[in-house]
Every structure is written in C-alpha cells, then in structure tokens.
Design a protein around this nucleic acid. Sequence first.
DNA 1: TATCCATATGAGCATGTTTTCAGATTATTT
DNA 2: AAATAATCTGAAAACATGCTCATATGGATA
Lengths: 121, 121
Amino acid sequence: MDTNEPSGDVCTVHEIDPEAVKYAKQHALPGRNIERLSRLFSALSDPTRLRILHALTIELCVCDLAIIVDLSVSAVSHQLRLLRDRDLVRARRDGRMVHYSLADEHVRHLMDTGVVHANEG
Amino acid sequence: MDTNEPSGDVCTVHEIDPEAVKYAKQHALPGRNIERLSRLFSALSDPTRLRILHALTIELCVCDLAIIVDLSVSAVSHQLRLLRDRDLVRARRDGRMVHYSLADEHVRHLMDTGVVHANEG
DNA sequence: TATCCATATGAGCATGTTTTCAGATTATTT
DNA sequence: AAATAATCTGAAAACATGCTCATATGGATA
C-alpha cells in the first residue's frame, strides 16, 4: 500500500505530470516555514494594522495612534497586542504611557516592497 | 465645532503629542494604497496559497497542484481564482487543461523577503 | 452526438477576525 | 488613599475566509 496517499482520501485525482509533482514536493517549503510566513503576511493583511505600522516611522503612544487611524483606543490596543505578539512592534513604557515603534527594519522593507508591487500591477 | 473630529465620535481621547500626530497624518499612505497593500498581503496570508505560489516555480496544472498541496481540486481551483483575480498568477489554457505559473517575479521576491524575515525572528 | 475529463463555480457550513462595550490594570497626582 | 489617566483585556456581535459538496463549463475523444 502507498503511504504517500493524501490523508483522508482528500485528493483522488491522477497525476498529469509525475516529474513536476515530484520536483515540487521535494522543493516544497517545510510546514514550519509556511506557518511562519503566513503569520507574517496575515499580520500585514489588515488595513488598520498597515496604517499603524506605517505611522510608526515615528515612535507613538496608543492614544495618538488611535487618533491617527481614527479608531477607538481599545481597537488599536488589540491590534498592537497582535503586532507585539508577532514581534513586528516594540513597546517602551514611560510612566503610564506606552510608546510603540517598529521592531526592526524588515517590516518597513516588506511594506515598501509591497507598495512597489501594488503600484506596478 | 471641530471638523477634525473622528467620524461617529469613535475616538474621544486627547492628543498627547500633537506634532507627532500631525506628522503621521500628513505622511499617511492614501487609502487606495492601503487597500491595495492589504489585498496583496492577504493573498499571501494563507498557507495553502503560499504553498501553491511556492510550487509554481514550475508551471503546473490544477490537478497536479491539488496533489502537491494535498487538497481537493475544487479547493485549489477556488484559491487559484483568487490568485488570478489579484494578478499573482497567470493561466495558460492547453486543451482541456489549464497550466498556472507566477504572474511575475515580484511575488517570488516578496515571498523570499518574507522567508528571510520569518527566519530571523 | 454522447461521453469523458479537467477545471470552474455557487451555496452552505465551520472557523477566524475585527471591532465594540464594559470592566480591569498600572501608574501618576492630589 | 482616592481620584484620575493611559492602556489592557474578555466577551460578544458583525463580518470575512476556506473548505466541501453538488453542479456547471469547455474541450477532447469515441
């Protein structure tokens, strides 16, 4: 019996080009990488978060961010938590205020690359 | 009355740093760009689509893609439609089969950049 | 023409996401 | 210590997403 069968008989179709399938399977990204990539891109997939990240060229507190993106402080705080959890953003406590900034330059680079692509289509 | 009030009184908080807020608002990306960016990144935010895109280093038919990502042909076809609509993927008809490939090199570049970022965290 | 095969599509269900609302924290100020 | 201020959090509502199943296309072959 063929242990390479898809689990749960999801796909019962014939291969058309076995060579290509073999190649693609061998060169596939490991599941862990796919998972990380998808988490990264999904962090960047929401308009509110993109606007927050873009604004964070400057260090900003939650309150000012809320004004900038025109949403409730709570909504912004929720999004910031997500961005913090994914290490895209860094928090610096100063008294009762928290100042946010981009975690590193990768984020900006990704967004810039995205803008270039989006404006060329 | 202050016409700069957020619509629907969503945010009733005081500005902390008016200068920073002013700067961020002036340099904000226009709504259209944000919308495009978010659509681009959300296309890249799903594991199945990432695996499809990654496999498409080679030109592949729907059937073989289904085997590669281990999902139903229907599921893959749905995702391919989304990727086509967003111009990330190109379709070439050959008889009753349709062969897919990446629309351009931007996609691969974005994914590569993402992988680098994801693996450095 | 009838049939088969690869792909595409629509509806529906299950799951996730984003926001709001109410209330909880943490830190300053009086 | 009490009041105030900025931020955080949990739950629930509104909306979006991804898959499956059934069915429709569009092209090849008998």
